[in-house]
Every structure is written in C-alpha cells, then in structure tokens.
C-alpha cells in the first residue's frame, strides 16, 4: 500500500472537493425569514426563498421544459420516549415554464394562477416571498415545523429523469427545522 501514501494528499483533496461540490449542489435554494401568521383560515407559513438555476436548467427551461418545485411542510409533535410524530402536512408547488410562442416566462403559482413574465429575473423576484396556507393546526405547543423545497424530477421528461450520475437536476434546499412557537 505504499503507493497510496504517495497520492495521499491528492486523494484527500479529491474527496474534499467532491464533498464541497456535493454540498453546493445540494444548497441551490436558500430559505429564510420564516414567519407564522394566524388568519381566519388558520395558520399561514411565510418564508423567503432564493432560487439559483444552473446553466443546464436554464437551457432546458429555454427549450420549453417545465420545472416544478415542491414545497414540503411538516409539523411534528415532540414525543419524549418515542420518535416524533407528523401531525400536519402540507405540500404545495409552483411551476416555471418558458412560452416560446409568447416569448415569456410563465409561472404557475401556488394558488394555481398563471402569470407571465418578460424575464426570468422578474419571475424569480416575484416568487421570492412564499406564503403557504397551513390551515388549522390543532396543536402549536411542543411542536416543530420543517420545510424543504426541491425540484420535482418526476415531472421531468423520462430521459432526463433517468439520467444516471447527472447531478444538475438535483436541486433542493436544506431541510429547515424550527420550533413552531418561536417563529415570528
């Protein structure tokens, strides 16, 4: 194994680089400014997101491929002697598509409405604040909420879905978790 010693530094560097790249790819959506609002219909979960789309995805969007982002929100009840339990779950999505005919970016909003934008930046700016209607939550004490946004690859065309080893399409945010009552 002496030859391994020779390339030890190179191996460590390669591993480290791979790890960093993996981390970068996995964090292309940043979330923040979480807030909970109470309304007549229950609770609304507000957050802000910063979406980064790499060149591959931009190219695909330009070709007319619709990309859908799922926002998964789960409320967990803490349990002392057992695994925590999901007591409320809400999944919403928004979809981005380029209309070649209209030469505009089309957004399908969380509420189902369509909206056209002249540029993608306009669209991204528009979808920065997100409001998720959680509805009625039975219990807010001793619970925590987690949220994650990820690109729904199952909605992509089949050839892109089963593109082994291709990480460009693995876009997701971290899994953010926080105490429900502490969010303001």
């Amino acid at each position: 194994m002496s030859y391994l010693k020779k390339y030890k530094a190179l191996l460590i560097l390669t591993f480290f680089t791979f790890f960093l790249l993996n981390e970068l790819i996995a964090n292309q959506i940043n979330l923040g400014n979480f807030n909970i609002e109470q309304s007549a219909e229950g609770y609304d979960f507000l957050l802000e997101q910063d979406l980064f789309l790499n060149d591959d995805i931009l190219k695909a969007v330009q070709k007319g491929i619709a990309i859908r982002f799922n926002i998964d929100t789960k409320i967990w009840q803490k349990r002392e002697f057992w695994f925590d339990k999901v007591i409320h779950k809400k999944t919403v999505f928004f979809e981005i598509k380029y209309r070649n005919l209209l030469k505009k970016y089309e957004l399908k909003e969380i509420n189902g409405n369509y909206k056209l934008f002249a540029t993608l930046d306009d669209l991204k700016k528009y979808i920065e604040p997100i409001k998720i209607k959680l509805g009625k939550v039975n219990k807010v004490e001793n619970v925590w909420i987690n949220v994650q946004i990820n690109l729904d690859t199952n909605r992509l065309p089949k050839p892109l879905q089963i593109n082994f080893g291709e990480k460009s399409w693995d876009i997701s945010s971290k899994n953010y978790s926080m105490e429900f009552e502490k969010i303001n």
């Binding site: 695909a60 070709k63 007319g64 065309p157 089949k158 050839p159 593109n163 082994f164 291709e166």
Partner: peptide, 25 residues
C-alpha cells in the same frame, strides 16, 4: 394553430435536449 406549433416545438426541443440521455438509456 399557434399553440399547437408551440407545443410541438417544445416537445421537439425537449427531445433534442434529451438526445444524449435517450441514446444512453
């Protein structure tokens, strides 16, 4: 007609984009 052309064009572009993937698969 315009929507139809757009739809076909998009499908074609999607296929063209997935060309390498298609071949691999």
């Amino acid at each position: 007609l315009a929507v139809s052309v757009e739809s076909v064009y998009e499908e074609y572009q999607q296929l063209a984009y997935s060309r390498t993937s298609l071949k691999i698969i």
